[in-house]
Nucleic acid binder design. Structure first.
Lengths: 209, 209
DNA sequence: AGCGAAACCTGAACTCAGTACAAGTTCTTA
DNA sequence: TAAGAACTTGTACTGAGTTCAGGTTTCGCT
């Protein structure tokens, strides 16, 4: 039997035994990201170059791009640990729940998961149109997973309607983000997410509240 | 009384008397755009540089950027003539119609307006992830106008709900675009737009068709 | 007709994101 | 511990987007 490294290191709070290489990689990832967020949140997104970030993280520009696929990605990408939580969120069977209710739960779970990052991100959006324009990129990490999840739940539904459900849920979520003031308590944001999903679920053609 | 140039040239099918300067500008705009679309649709978006386009249009790179704010913009931006039609579409009072019905009409009108361009655009999306990623930019020209229009119709409604209505309508529209095969007849696309808006209006939490 | 101002076009020089690659370093595994 | 895979780095390149000074065209007015 081998020393560390049992079977596969897919479970456990990530940090478990997983080889020097992997551990270093995660560490480097986090170093780069926090260097980036530090610089960006004090100078603003546009005023920080990838070179600045790399220098601050003590790493080369080339290496930066081997960890993040773009400058925006360093703001959007999920920590591996968060990815794990996200998958766990989707793996919950949620049997018997109607589709829209299940979606609402996933959305709220996601919001919780992002609670640390979101206020900062929102503030960055406000000051940098550059970044804001690519805001849709936030979802790039979620989209594939979420589409699979949806497809599994609506096995034979028609394509168009399934896509609509997905995009509308996303619209509800981003609407809540747009409307949220990052200085307000996070609970306010969660309320908005709930409201938006409820309204969209009930039908927007309905007048009144 | 002066010769040409009566009052202001805001009405009329644009092409009316409007000064040499303006006419040249419009002409240059169209030359650049069609040079761009020509090159792009034969070589693909990524394989054409701004320099290529400028050269093909017989104009300098600098000038290109004085007409279009980015390389993507040359694909997305509306011809001034189309802008005129778009504004006309929004100016129609549509009295007495419930909000969602009015939105549906605007969306269908917009689709009609884009009918020429859309098949090509869709094909470009399919081949260039680069371009596709910034697809949301398509709406950048519509967003401000549309938000004003909406705000005028829901004068005292709450912000969040208004934003949700807007984003959901947009989601419905883009869903129809995503699902559409540009080789199918345009009517198919219009049907999808109608369906998506109807479903979103009726409430996505409702199961079944 | 003609003149001054404003708008326009252009080439050159620059910044920065993103990619390619070859050469060096570090970890893994058997 | 040696072969090899994975990772890092500097260098060099492409291409988008900006700035700017200087030249040309059009406009408004007389």
């Amino acid at each position: 039997m081998r020393p560390g490294k049992a079977a596969h290191a897919d479970r456990c709070p990530v940090s478990a035994v997983m080889g020097l290489r992997e551990r270093k990689k995660l560490e480097a990832w986090r170093t780069i990201r926090s260097a980036a967020l530090g610089l960006i949140s004090e100078r603003g997104f546009d005023a920080v170059s990838v070179e600045d970030i790399a220098a601050e993280a003590g790493v080369s520009r080339t290496t930066f791009f081997s960890y993040f696929s773009s400058k925006e990605a360093v703001v959007y990408d999920l920590d591996p640990e968060e990815v794990r939580q996200w998958r766990a969120l989707l793996d919950d069977p949620r049997d018997g729940q109607p589709l829209w209710a299940a979606i609402t739960e996933v959305a709220l779970g996601l919001a919780q998961l992002l609670s640390e990052r979101l206020p900062l991100q929102k503030r960055l959006f406000e000051q940098s149109p550059e970044l804001c324009r690519s805001a849709r990129g936030t979802c790039d990490s979620f989209e594939p997973d979420l589409k699979l999840w949806l497809a599994a739940r609506v096995p034979d539904g028609d394509e168009l309607r399934t896509a609509l459900v997905f995009n509308t849920a996303l619209a509800a979520f981003t609407t809540a983000i747009e409307a949220w003031d990052p200085d307000d308590p996070f609970e306010t944001f969660l309320e908005s997410v709930r409201d938006c999903l409820r309204w969209a679920g009930a039908g927007l053609a309905r007048t009144g509240s």
